[in-house]
Design a protein around this nucleic acid. Structure first.
Lengths: 238, 238
DNA sequence: GCGCAATGGACGACTACTCGTCCATTGGAC
DNA sequence: GTCCAATGGACGAGTAGTCGTCCATTGCGC
């Protein structure tokens, strides 16, 4: 009999503790949750949050240092600081990223579509407090003022802000996960002015529908936005 | 600044390898992926799929044996067999399950709603092969013929079948995860004839829309079905 | 200028997990 | 009746990860 067993009996761990820790910090850095120059949480704090020993966390940080993502300074008011900058787009990079994903590309696109349209709909259906509304508007404003070099990260921040408004930690984690899987691909696409203007209009439509409490509209705007991005991606890959 | 960092810096591991392994097998058993009397994959096979050593897997199986979920027999054509049966509903069980979930209840309900409505919509938008169509129809037929004692498991199987039709392993895993979080709660609700008839009509509507290639209809039918279940749950909790 | 508190850096003892290997049991095939 | 292949069962050596503890560095407050 056909069974969903493959999905349930998938590997319990995505790698060893060290690798998973690297992956998580990379997620926070690449998605722009911590911007260039900002300080990550202290080792003792971060290792506790990630549920990993400080040794393992430090090994992960050292690895990220070697690869130029962060740098650490000792002493009070020291810490680990983000040095990563978004890479320049390039077709070679795009093909490599697509090859790495392989058959997982469709999976990732579908996963993102389901989570983000669902999150937008849920967010629009909730009564939002002033802080939440300001947060969403703020991320939208950041995005509209973005330079090309920081565009992708602020785009991620905006989409994450939508997920945050659902109040569901699981959804936020899922959206972050889905975006991360596509991140290398998206970073490889040239950021053209025409596309940015197009995206900007879609982002405004999303925010407007969410703030107006229009779930159907929020879902539609989000779907259109993600479909446009996916089409752009396919065009560059085709 | 407000950050989605809590979602990204959540614990890397849900527990030790042993606990996670127990959890996964429990998921397969409680969701009815392996029914009463069926044989689980052999230890060598299962440990490889779960990415865990055979020792750890065996420790997990032994633990499940002690709690009466499975039993093992040696020799060729031996193996580990499911002995679990769905528990009887009960209000005490319900309250305990709700307390265990705590603030995670809303999160779990939202997560399930987003994933399952999204999965139904995606499934309806795909061209399904004959095997897929037969699979969905088969799970629906199983459910219509179910006795009260096996109802919840066959219900889970039907919902998982919908997710499988999306072709996205990530979605299947997510749906299984979301259902598992609510499973103890759902099992504690008495299965009344009226509710079953109501659910049956909704399940038929879902399957029909998916097989007819009607994404909007599939989404709507799924949302109505899940909202009804959630309302029932809240009624018993209130 | 001194001290303090918060940070990154390092290490040894301990524990959980893995890996390879072998044993014990069983029922069907011949 | 014998053999065999597939299964669960067990164990010792090796490795990855944790925990507690201490050290080194740094800049602000007094």
């Amino acid at each position: 009999m056909r069974r969903p067993a493959d999905a349930v009996f998938r590997p319990v761990r995505g790698g060893n503790a060290f690798e998973e820790t690297v992956e998580r910090i990379l997620q926070a850095v690449k998605l722009g949750i911590y911007a260039h120059g900002e300080r990550l949480p202290a080792e003792r704090d971060l290792s506790a949050r990630l549920g990993v020993s400080r040794d393992t966390l430090r090994e992960a940080v050292r690895s990220l240092q070697r690869e130029g993502y962060v740098e650490s300074r000792r002493g009070r008011y020291g810490g680990t600081f983000v040095t990563y900058r978004e890479p320049q787009p390039g077709v070679g990079r795009l093909r490599r990223a697509a090859r790495d994903l392989g058959a997982g590309l469709e999976d990732a696109l579908v996963h993102r579509m389901v989570l983000e349209t669902g999150a937008a709909e849920v967010a629009a259906g909730r009564v939002l407090d002033e802080a939440g509304r300001a947060h969403l508007s703020g991320r939208l404003a950041d995005l509209e003022a973005a330079t090309p070099g920081e565009y992708r990260q602020l785009d991620s921040r905006f989409h994450l802000a939508v997920a945050e408004l659902t109040g569901s930690p699981t959804l936020v984690a899922g959206v972050a996960e889905a975006r991360m899987r596509l991140n290398d691909l998206l970073n490889a696409i040239p950021v053209l002015d025409r596309n940015i203007e197009h995206s900007a209009a879609q982002h405004r439509a999303m925010a407007q529908a969410i703030l107006a409490g229009d779930p159907e509209g929020a879902r539609r705007a989000t779907r259109e936005h993600l479909e446009a991005t996916a089409a752009l991606l396919r065009a560059f890959l085709g």
